[in-house]
């Protein structure tokens, strides 16, 4: 298994499949049980290092680590020395001194988890919980897991991702992971919200939503911040939702089996209407519960027996 989870690109197809299979196992072991705790990470310390507010993601990681019986420390920017200007390096050295085994990092700067993992400041396993506009690999894993539960094997499945790809980290990780798993991704956005060079990504790109909906097996709507219109990415929220929002009419263009996803938090009325978000084929709430299991699987595979594994010895020697 990989040492750090920094990008969806760190995962080979077999790694990703193992992660999703392990997630299935975690779901089976906890679903419907009154006692949801497993002893696997007893004695291990997981630090949730959040330089950026995200109650949803932090809570999900915290719950995942606790269900595996790890000791969990929440180290958030607010109320810690980070807000007093303590550097990433000093924070890392502090956590290393505390004996953290795994560090879950959320940061507004792209690449911060990468720096933490590669700088030699800390020996712990690093999990990227969202960095800047770079990546959010566990979100992509939970999306893939949710899709797999409904659609089966994702090989050849058609996934449409709609919204702010430029500023979003979810789309990046999803394109990479879904491509690894054999799915065919189409990104839909106004040209202003697509990064330069997107034509070379392993996916298709469309400026129009309607034509790609009938063939889609899943549609993922991304959050679009209304403030973007102030920087001329689109003229108005109304025009955006008219051209790219998932409303009842567009929902009707989907096949009967197609599912709707959203990584949250939603802008109801902007990228998705309330009736679609709350429809039977919306799996948005399920994504949240699957998120905990995916993070359990990641923490388990990366931390359980981490000291004894052969690759660890190898990495230590490198």
């Amino acid at each position: 298994m990989i040492r750090h989870l920094l990008s969806a690109a760190d995962l080979s197809r077999s790694d990703a499949t193992l992660l999703l299979d392990t997630t299935e196992e975690m779901l089976r072991l906890t679903e419907g049980r009154s006692v949801k705790k497993l002893p696997t990470l007893r004695g291990r310390t997981v630090v949730n290092l959040f330089f950026e507010d995200s109650t949803r993601t932090r809570t999900s990681f915290e719950l995942a680590a606790k269900r595996l019986s790890a000791d969990v420390i929440n180290f958030s920017a607010k109320g810690s020395s980070v807000s007093k200007g303590e550097s990433l390096k000093d924070t890392a050295l502090t956590l290393a001194a505390m004996g953290a085994d795994g560090v879950v990092v959320r940061h507004s700067a792209s690449g911060a988890p990468y720096r933490l993992a590669s700088s030699g400041w800390i020996d712990a396993r690093v999990l990227n919980a969202g960095d800047g506009t770079h990546e959010h690999p566990t979100q992509a894993l939970l999306d893939a897991f949710t899709m797999r539960r409904h659609l089966g094997d994702l090989d050849g499945r058609k996934i449409v991702i709609v919204g702010d790809v430029l500023h979003g980290r979810v789309a990046r990780s999803n394109v990479i992971l879904l491509n690894t798993l054999g799915a065919r991704v189409t990104l839909v956005a106004p040209p202003t919200l697509l990064p330069l060079g997107v034509e070379n990504w392993p996916c298709d790109v469309s400026y129009h939503l309607d034509p790609v909906l009938p063939d889609a097996d899943a549609v993922m709507m991304l959050r679009v911040q209304r403030e973007r219109m102030n920087a001329a990415f689109f003229p108005s929220a109304r025009e955006y939702s008219r051209r790219y929002g998932l409303d009842a009419r567009r929902f009707g263009l989907l096949s009967d089996e197609a599912i709707v996803l959203h990584p949250g938090p939603m802008n109801r009325g902007m990228e998705i209407t309330a009736d679609v978000a709350d429809s039977e084929r919306s799996v948005i709430v399920e994504q949240v519960s699957n998120g905990v299991c995916v993070r359990m699987a990641a923490l388990y595979l990366m931390l359980a027996g981490a000291d004894e594994t052969a690759d660890d010895v190898h990495e230590g020697a490198a």
Binding site: S110, G111, D131, G132, T133, H134, E135, L166, R169, R172, P195, L196, G197, V198, N200, W201
Partner: peptide, 9 residues
Amino acid sequence: GELSGRLGL
């Protein structure tokens, strides 16, 4: 360029 898009910078 393509790399800035990939790195999220």
